[in-house]
Write a protein that binds this DNA or RNA. Structure first.
Lengths: 223, 223
DNA sequence: TATCTTTTAATCCAAATGGGTTATTGTACA
DNA sequence: TGTACAATAACCCATTTGGATTAAAAGATA
């Protein structure tokens, strides 16, 4: 049973979706809310374990709309997934919602089967219901803000030597060249030469930039 | 004029694309290369400012193929964008190339207009040419990559003042205290005082540690 | 063997950094 | 109206850092 919450300002919408989900026997409706503010208050009142796994959230609502609510909730309750409810598939607000932290969306007149399939999918493999057009737009956004997980630890070793990679890892851990020298039984001079070579290869000019790059590319997953 | 490099093992392919681009008057071909290795050597020989903005890269080539080349180049030259050249739109290797760091691809028999449009787009708004099918696949890959987002009681703005957060962001971008002072019209003394306060609040002792922490917690990457 | 790369180590200098301390101004809050 | 805090700015000092250059030894490769 998938634990779901429904947020919509129109009572008939809430009830219609709720009944569909309950009738399917696959989902259980933890609570319903009338707007973003109401939703956040009800989430706060619940214990962690009893919070919904998925929230179906209308975009346009009074007091606090769905985009604002997702923006907050996706930070404060990151384990819950957020799916928007919309009438049009080409709504620019869908994209705003994805930026705010929504995983995907359903059309309001979607069949029960499609909704249930989508819910299962998002719980099981994280795949979110989304049209190719929106997917494309979201991807562009992710790609322009350089990508996580494109280059793994293997790729960095094609660029840096083993020793350089070893030293870079220690730099990322916040050590200075003296610490590194002691840890690796090297002269501080040697360590500094390696660091200079690393900067050259990665085209950065200081410690912050190289740490940022290494973290962004997730080169050393061991922390 | 968009600065482009072309990498393809077949001379007639290189020339055909090169002439199309030059004829359009929109792009300038910085250099051409025969394979991945040749490409990397020519990149290394160039000064940063004169490197291509976009590289059109064939996938299958002798010595070093396009995927391996992009894997390395997207790390060593992250400011350059990489677009693959392929015959088939459903080639699984396109997906491998995207994982390695490519932004998108062109079909080899694409019209000049489409190529120019694609090049402009990638420079201006980061949008990469890609079919919806491939986009969806790539998006799923990126989305399944978990988002840590452990905000809450730890939320950055509850700890740091607005000014401190502003300065921290610039530090993460690799600026030193002089750069920050100029950017914010402050005295370098003031900036250093803020930095010291940030370190104190976050319990770190140097630049690397604070950059690592900010990146790990994703404080300044709302996506 | 000759050559290349990696790793090691050193020198020099100028600049940036970290760790203290002190002090003035402005704003918000009780 | 006083007090707290944020933001501003300055001073000190020792250490770390970045950049440039040189060079020796070990290992791999052709």
């Amino acid at each position: 049973m998938i634990k779901v919450a429904i947020v919509d300002d129109k009572p008939q919408n809430r009830n219609s979706i709720k009944e569909k989900l309950i009738y399917s026997g696959e989902a259980e409706v933890i609570f319903t809310a009338q707007n973003g503010k109401d939703f956040l208050e009800q989430m706060e009142a619940l214990k962690t374990a009893s919070r919904p796994q998925v929230v179906l959230m209308d975009i346009e609502m009074p007091l606090m709309d769905g985009i604002a609510a997702v923006g907050i909730a996706s930070i404060t309750y990151p384990d819950t997934r957020y799916l928007m409810l919309t009438v049009f598939d080409n709504d620019d607000k869908i994209f705003d919602a994805i930026k705010a932290g929504a995983a995907g969306y359903f059309l309001k007149d979607e069949s029960v089967e499609k909704i249930i399939t989508g819910l299962k999918q998002i719980i099981e493999d994280g795949g979110a219901p989304m049209s190719p057009r929106i997917a494309r737009k979201a991807l562009n956004m992710l790609m322009s803000n350089p990508a996580p997980a494109t280059a793994g630890p293997d790729d960095i070793l094609n660029v840096l030597s083993d020793r350089e990679a070893e030293i870079l890892k220690l730099l990322v851990d916040g050590m200075d060249h003296i610490d590194v020298a002691e840890k690796l039984f090297l002269s501080p001079h040697t360590v500094r030469k390696h660091i200079a070579n690393i900067y050259g290869k990665l085209h950065v000019t200081n410690r912050s930039q190289v740490v940022k790059l290494a973290m962004k590319r997730r080169w050393f997953m061991l922390f």
